[in-house]
Amino acid sequence: MAAKQSVQTRRAQLTVQDIERRKKLVGLGQDDLARIAAIKSTVVQNADKFTDAFFDYLKELEGGAPLFKNAAVLNEARQLKREHIIAIASGDYGVPYVDQRMRLGALYSKVGLDVQVFLGAFHHLLRSIGTEIIKSSGNTMQAFDSFMSLQKVAFLDIGIIVDVLIDERERTINEQQEAIREISTPCLQIRDRLLILPIIGLIDSQRAKQLTDNLLHAIRANRAKVVVMDITGVAAVDSKVANHLIQTVAAARLMGAETIVTGLSAEVAQSLVALGVDLSKVNTVGDLQGGLEAAEKLLGYRIVVLDKNSRATEAA
């Protein structure tokens, strides 16, 4: 599913102009098309043989294993590869051709095939095609020229496949980063109208913005009056981060919520003082416990420890 989606998005990006540009980059011209047409029958006739050569070689390779784990995937890959070998000699390298290439690339990416492994097997495929062309042709020089033309198309393919593989990898990285961001800024309600916002890890400007955004919306959604922001898990606070915190506190105040910042470690406090950051407008308390107590006081809560007798009646 994910792979399919990616092909969709890439497809949207790869316009006719883009394909033309890629063709120009590998130097694919009209005379190449003519030469490829001359060897078309040889390639098409031996398509099955070439497909086998590609997959047999891949099977021997150490990194080729992922493709052979699942029979259905392997079958699909074989099918696509065979289509490709026929298409590579067809002389028509438009959008459908590129599309087919990207489908195969997405499949490789899905099973986790390495770029190096793919390149190795692809080279082997080209070699077997080249050998066949030269064998079936009387004129070696001419056959070589034809093969070189075919190779231009092959490089066009490699460009596309590598792009797809890189694209997929980047997408995975982005997704993971997004996931980390999502889980790293929870805004929790622990009492009526009291939120805590534990911040862990590094705060960059993007995360700070998201954090503030989350908090402000949570204040609205939970009708919070007091927020305890705990930065015990933030290793380093520089002036930029401190500024973000001050801004967040100010924004929360505009929405009628008081913010208590807790968990400033000794180092953080020292560095803030050394930096000359003015935190006088921010209500700070040493640790989370103290912060919660202060917040409860603001909200008018009083914590009472029940004695043994009343605890027993409560349980009953």
């Binding site: 955004d213 402000l216 204040i219 801004q247 100010a250 505009l254 929405m255 009628g256």
Partner: peptide
Amino acid sequence: IQPDVAFAMVQLGLVLENVQTALDLEE
């Protein structure tokens, strides 16, 4: 004050010093 408005105001340095703010009419 809406969340986005609050954030924008803070970023522009438009902080309502010495003015009381609350979440909604009830508050």
